[in-house]
């Protein structure tokens, strides 16, 4: 009997209550639920504009209106320059990128609280939810990016005042960095909100404030004297490299981009570790 049970011991498919490692990606589980990941992405995209007449066109109307608003407020009224780039193009570049970052951060940082009811009823790797958010956010971004490209082509052909260069090839890297930065920070915040709800109030406020510390609506060159401080914000190099590549203005500095990459790696790894620890018990405290 004991021999038999010893043999059995090897064959368990799952052991609940094991102390997990500090950091485990649990890729096998995520792979098993890959169809669910696809379903969540689809749901995010499809359900947003169901029962609307314009449907997915809303994805592009929104950044156009935001850019126009910024144009009126910051260019016309506040007279903040845009580095001699057509203001609508300049803002469109910033706004679409910023939207991707802030929306992803906003939803991933609410992972536990918003999904408490479903997490309380069924098991699947919790990280599927924030992963689906960065993917559906990316799809939305790419739709908006197409709009940006159209405006860019117009400026390039008709006005000739933009100078795209080889740095555009870095776009996938920039998007990846931005996606995982918001993912990592989001995971850390959502893990903390399961116990300390106060953070939920701060996060929305914090994100909108943070936009002004990032060269979204102004060129970084405007603050040449404080460049170091501005560069400490890991988003700065992403936005500047993007503008450098597509518009020919801005700054491309491999060192600061490396700093951003390191920062992203650290928050992602730390975020995953905290998230893995919290996900096992959060339902008791949320």
């Amino acid at each position: 009997m004991t021999e038999r049970s010893a043999a059995e011991e090897q064959k368990w498919d799952l052991i609940i209550g094991e102390q997990g490692k500090f950091f485990s990606l649990n890729l096998r589980d995520i792979w098993r639920f890959r169809d669910l990941l696809v379903m969540f992405v689809k749901r995010d995209i499809v359900t947003v504009y169901k029962q609307t007449i314009l449907g997915p066109i809303w994805f592009v109307i929104q950044p156009i209106f935001t850019s126009l608003t910024y144009m009126i407020i910051f260019t016309r009224m506040a007279k903040i320059g845009t580095d001699e780039i057509s203001p609508i193009l300049f803002y469109l570049a910033g706004v679409t990128m910023w939207n991707y970052f802030s929306e992803t951060l906003n939803v991933t940082s609410k992972t536990f609280i918003e999904n408490a009811s479903i997490f309380g009823k069924v098991y699947f790797p919790r990280v599927i939810i924030p992963l689906s958010k960065i993917i559906s956010g990316l799809i939305k971004y790419l739709i908006q990016f197409a709009l940006f490209l159209i405006v860019l082509a117009y400026n390039f052909i008709v006005k000739g005042n933009v100078h795209p260069n080889a740095a555009v090839l870095l776009l996938p890297v920039l998007l990846l960095l931005m996606a995982f930065m918001s993912f990592g920070i989001g995971l850390i915040i959502t893990s903390m909100t399961t116990k300390y709800r106060d953070l939920t109030f701060l996060i929305t406020f914090g994100i909108s404030l943070f936009m002004y510390l990032t060269p979204v609506i102004y060129p970084a060159s405007k603050f040449a004297n404080y460049r170091y401080i501005l560069n400490l914000n890991p988003l700065t190099s992403i936005f500047e490299t993007f503008k450098y590549g597509f518009l020919g203005k801005g700054e491309f500095n491999i060192m600061w981009l490396g700093y951003t990459a390191l920062f992203t790696l650290v928050v992602t790894v730390y975020g995953m570790a905290v998230f893995n620890k919290i996900e096992k018990k959060f339902i008791d405290t949320v």
Partner: peptide, 10 residues
Amino acid sequence: VTSPTEGRVK
């Protein structure tokens, strides 16, 4: 959905 404080399930 949640983890045990002690013990395990195989």
